[in-house]
Design a protein around this nucleic acid. Structure first.
Length: 438
RNA sequence: GCGACCGUAGCUCAGCUGGUAGAGCACUCGGUUGUGGUCCGAGUUGUCGCGGGUUCAAGCCCCGUCGGUCGCCCCA
């Protein structure tokens, strides 16, 4: 204590690694609970995989352009030469593929699982884009053949999730990649990735620039126009049926898309739309693809919930044919976007879970206050004790600040009744801990 | 990874053409005895991101650096 220079390490947020205040966290937990409930109501089971995978596993799909955080010990010994072997996963699809391959014999197919974990991407943060964030994934994996009806089911599940979060209207935009790949087949175009990336930007950059990008990708004038015309198609199942298909792949894609739309007919009209410009940059999708827009948050144009069907998920890890379909809800993105743009929708309130604050009238009544709290807890109430026998004013101030809805006064003198104060109305009644009801 | 802009109290910010820092909110205490949210009074809070340069003098000007925000890329 001879040093009177106290060094303060100034706390700062690490950009892209969000953390919330207790009142925000409470809402976040509510959202997680809701999502879990919906997923489970469709029979999906929960799994959790480690935060890290072997780098080779993460890169097996060839996603080299992903910004991956590698894991390294500060005190490496001589045996750990060079490269680190482990890295944080950047999504939950790759870990799922590894998991399914590894536990293949112990799983029952179709394997329907949900997973709500953090993922990490080393990108530059922006609104709705973080370096550490939660994703809530549902996927269905089957052996050899996965019914197309699952493509509709996972979409319906996510719609139900979004609908229950009170975030305004959400819109699923659905496409089937086979329509575009079929068209590209007729043009003998092999490298489809630059084309899909260009098409995917249609809404953002407009017809003219899409054409420019397509030309750059090697398509000629007529081909570019044709691809653009296709990408501009959007609407209902009836609209998709009118598209003229030039080969079997296109026809199959259109039929699958119509099937999926037909099986989502129970959703409100604004909730689902076919949009042929949605093709997704990721190259492992082979059929249905999804994106989700927040219709009532026009200032955020990104997708909060995306996914699709992949013909062969785990081919890099096991010699089986395992088709799958899944959607990933960008939980932290959604939460943060709503928090920043529509805070009133989040219902931010109490700074803790307590329903009742137990006042301690004076030191002699501490045991009585404790006992009263225990009785109420046994009856299912969340009760927080005030621990210092301070002025009642202080104790009420505390309850008020934390937005605890009720304050309980044990009798100040023996023989007197308990009293309960409703903090929002100010009303105070006599009651007993054994019978009180909110 | 590339480009634009921005770094002053815990937070939001003010600080004129350079003269060694201020407001609101928050926080603490008080306005007597067992009752909050309003009001009133008092008080605490800063290496002005960091390093260098110009100057008698730098929060302000110059260079560098780190951090942040937004856009691009990519994506949840």
């Amino acid at each position: 204590m001879s040093e009177n220079i106290k060094r303060i390490y100034k706390p700062k947020a690490i950009s892209g690694f969000p953390e919330w205040l207790p009142e925000e966290r409470l809402v976040e937990q509510k959202w997680f609970d809701h999502i879990r409930r919906v997923f489970e109501s469709y029979g999906f089971c929960s799994i959790e995989t480690p935060s890290v995978e072997e780098i080779d596993v993460l890169l097996a799909k060839g996603e080299v352009d992903k910004e991956i955080y590698a894991l390294e010990r500060l005190h490496k010994d001589e045996h750990d030469k060079g490269e680190s072997r482990l890295a944080l996963h950047f999504d939950q699809t790759v870990p799922l593929a590894r998991y399914v391959a590894q536990h293949f014999n112990e799983l029952t197919f179709p394997f329907k699982r949900y997973q709500m974990q953090r993922v990490w991407r080393g990108e530059r943060p922006q609104m709705g884009r973080m370096r550490e964030f939660y994703q809530c994934d549902i996927d269905v994996i089957h052996v050899d053949n996965l019914p197309i009806s699952f493509d509709a089911e996972v979409a319906a599940i996510m719609y139900e999730v979004l609908e229950g979060l009170n975030i305004g209207r959400a819109q699923l935009r659905i496409n089937n990649r086979k329509i575009l790949t079929g068209l590209l087949e007729t043009m003998n175009i092999r490298d489809i990735t630059p084309v899909t990336r260009a098409v995917d930007k249609l809404e953002k950059i407009g017809d003219f620039l899409v054409i420019a990008e397509l030309r750059q990708a090697g398509l000629n004038e007529a081909q570019s126009q044709k691809v653009l015309n296709l990408a501009q198609q959007k609407g209902t199942a009836a609209d998709i049926k009118r598209i003229s298909c030039e080969n079997a792949t296109m026809t199959q894609g259109a039929e699958e898309l119509v099937y999926v739309l037909d099986h989502l007919a129970h959703l409100p009209a604004h909730g689902v739309i076919a949009d042929l410009s949605i093709v997704r940059g990721l190259d492992y999708y082979t059929g249905t693809v999804y994106e989700t827009k927040l219709l009532d948050v026009p200032e955020f144009t990104g997708s909060v919930c995306s996914g699709g069907r992949y013909d062969d998920l785990a081919g890099s890890y096991i010699n089986k044919h395992l088709p799958g379909v899944g959607i990933s809800l960008g939980f932290s993105r959604l939460f943060d976007v709503i928090r920043q743009t529509r805070p009133e929708l989040m219902g931010i309130g109490p700074k803790g879970p307590a329903e009742i604050l137990m006042v301690i009238p004076d030191e002699n009544k501490r045991a009585l206050a404790s006992e009263t709290a225990r009785t109420l807890r046994r009856r299912g109430f969340k009760v927080e004790m005030y621990h210092a026998a301070q002025k009642i004013k202080k104790q009420l101030e505390y309850a008020s600040k934390k937005l605890i809805p009720f304050v309980w006064f044990p009798p100040f003198e023996d023989g007197k009744p308990h009293e309960v104060k409703n903090m929002s109305t100010g009303e105070q009644i006599t009651s007993t801990p054994e019978t009180w009801k909110a």
